[in-house]
């Protein structure tokens, strides 16, 4: 089980209706690939974030499938369309069954 998993996101506090807002996300996670061995020669089991989603007011912005080739501390940058004030929900799904969620409100004028 990965320790110290902390998600963080950057979303502007406000935007104009219909504006494209740039979103950045980063989650601290080792993204253990399952390809490495420990000092005793045993394979270190795969343990990664395998899915990341971003929704705004219940509608999908992006839904990403992640494989072990995504770097340690997975980082994503993308653009969302906002037509109204509301809440972004970011969700990361861990191989170990953990689900990490982060929410950000945005005021749209």
């Amino acid at each position: 089980m990965a320790e110290n998993v902390t998600p963080r996101v950057r979303v502007p506090d406000s935007a104009s209706a219909g504006e494209a807002v740039l979103i950045k996300t980063l989650i601290s996670h080792p993204m253990e690939s399952g390809q490495r061995k420990d000092s005793q020669g045993n394979v270190i089991p795969r343990s990664i974030i395998n899915r990341f989603t971003c929704e705004f007011n219940g509608e999908t912005v992006i839904d990403a499938t992640l494989e072990p080739a995504i770097s340690t501390n997975p980082y994503f940058e993308f653009e969302a369309l906002v037509n109204e004030s509301g809440t972004f929900v970011f969700t990361w799904y861990d191989d170990d069954g953990s689900v990490y969620e982060e929410r950000k409100d945005i005021t749209v004028s």
Partner: peptide, 12 residues
Amino acid sequence: DFDNPGMLGVER
């Protein structure tokens, strides 16, 4: 700072 993974250590 958002792009800098070293800032994760600062936050911890």
